[in-house]
Computed example of a mutant assay.
Amino acid sequence: MAAAARLAARGRPLSRPNPAVGCLVVRDGIVVGRGWTRAGGRPHAEAVALAEAGEAARGASVYVTLEPCAHRAGRGPACSDLLVEARPARVVVGQRDPDERTRGRGIERLGAAGIAVALHDCPASRASLAGYLVQAERGRPHVTLKLATSLDGAIATAGGESRWITGPAARAHVHSRRAMADAILVGGGTWRADAPRLDVRLPGLEARSPRRLVLSRSIAAPGVETLPAPAAIAGLEAVQYLYVEGGAGAAAAFLAADLVDRIELYRAPIVIGGGAGAIGDIGLSSLAAAHGRWRLAERRQLGSDTFEAYRRQGQGQPQDGD
């Protein structure tokens, strides 16, 4: 199932408005079919994997990160019907689909056809579907807050110089993360001071640049959408993953509104002293209230810089990851 979840990442974010799903068909310990949701949401992961497997799917095991859809659409058949036709011995499902058109019906259809079905609440599947699940459960996109700081937590010198705190490996990693997002947002102050391009500049991935958003009530610029407040992200269409890049005011606004699901921190081995802080006041009432909110999900070295990802704690919170 973890391998299927890694396949699902290939569909993000091009699968929008559909979730990025991964599927593996395994027979006698050998993978005979692989699939992930394609651009525009079709074909679905199961359709791709079953087409690759062909007759080998009969009697095989199918691992899919999200419950196979049960609703028929003009763009393609229901995946639960495709699986019934393919006759695998069993289907292992990573997450039940919250979409009311499928919710449980896909699993029921497979069971009624005599196919063994196992619902495996897999953390890897849930992580790969974090944007889709947060949208379904909370009515908003999954929000990642990106910070790039010195060892002493500064994002710029006292004079405002901020390019570049981190090195080329870390900056390339940031662009790969942008390419996984549906939309990217900065605060009005950052937009006025830096006029950031907010695009993807990795060779071959330039077309994966996300929608550009600015947290402001007054800025007007071509190709940029404005949001008056963090809560307005609930009104964004076809956005499952939102990447917030700064600055300190925007970071504080999203944290204060309790809208951050994941923090990605890039830390350079430099000390600035007296520089601009990464996050403004978030209205924290006590130090005790700061504890227990974040858990380390990932750590890696990027050249001389350190990357750490922290996921938000809380019951039912999708465990975001890669």
Results as ranks from 00 to 15, higher is better:
40 G>F: 05
200 V>S: 02
243 Y>P: 01
85 E>C: 01
1 M>W: 06
156 A>K: 03
169 A>N: 07
53 A>D: 02
213 L>P: 04
207 A>I: 04
68 P>H: 10
246 G>P: 00
313 Q>W: 03
26 V>G: 02
18 N>V: 02
316 G>N: 09
271 V>A: 14
95 Q>G: 07
116 A>C: 11
20 A>D: 03
218 S>P: 04
309 A>W: 00
220 A>Y: 09
129 L>M: 10
251 A>T: 08
138 R>G: 07
309 A>R: 08
255 L>D: 02
252 A>M: 05
315 Q>G: 15
167 G>S: 07
225 E>N: 14
321 G>R: 11
147 L>A: 09
226 T>V: 11
297 A>E: 13
40 G>V: 12
49 A>Q: 04
161 E>R: 11
149 T>A: 13
304 S>C: 08
168 P>R: 12
237 E>F: 03
101 R>S: 14
91 V>T: 03
2 A>F: 09
116 A>L: 07
223 G>H: 14
41 G>D: 04
311 R>Q: 13
155 I>A: 01
34 R>L: 09
106 G>P: 02
43 P>F: 05
124 A>L: 07
59 G>L: 10
9 A>K: 10
84 V>A: 06
67 E>T: 08
223 G>K: 11
192 R>K: 15
130 A>V: 07
119 L>G: 05
184 I>F: 02
240 Q>S: 11
277 G>F: 12
85 E>D: 04
257 A>V: 09
284 L>R: 10
52 E>Q: 09
102 T>W: 09
57 A>Q: 03
70 A>Q: 08
193 A>G: 09
256 A>M: 07
63 Y>Q: 07
183 A>R: 07
262 R>S: 05
114 G>A: 10
153 G>K: 07
170 A>I: 05
137 E>K: 01
145 L>G: 00
138 R>H: 13
301 Q>C: 06
86 A>N: 04
26 V>F: 01
211 R>L: 04
103 R>P: 02
23 C>W: 07
170 A>N: 05
265 L>W: 11
263 I>T: 08
77 P>F: 00
217 R>I: 12
189 G>A: 12
116 A>K: 00
255 L>Q: 03
75 R>S: 15
65 T>L: 08
231 A>F: 03
86 A>M: 00
235 G>R: 06
174 V>N: 08
152 D>S: 12
187 G>S: 15
11 G>N: 11
19 P>D: 13
53 A>W: 00
242 L>T: 05
301 Q>T: 14
108 E>A: 15
104 G>K: 10
301 Q>K: 14
94 G>N: 09
310 Y>S: 06
183 A>Q: 05
261 D>V: 08
175 H>P: 02
124 A>P: 06
319 Q>A: 13
292 G>Q: 09
202 L>Y: 01
202 L>C: 01
240 Q>E: 09
96 R>I: 14
10 R>M: 14
292 G>I: 09
111 G>Y: 02
223 G>M: 12
171 R>M: 14
48 V>T: 02
138 R>F: 11
221 A>W: 12
108 E>T: 10
153 G>S: 14
163 R>M: 14
254 F>Q: 08
54 G>K: 07
257 A>D: 11
141 P>M: 03
151 L>P: 00
154 A>E: 03
233 I>V: 15
17 P>W: 08
151 L>R: 11
62 V>R: 08
90 R>H: 04
55 E>R: 12
310 Y>C: 06
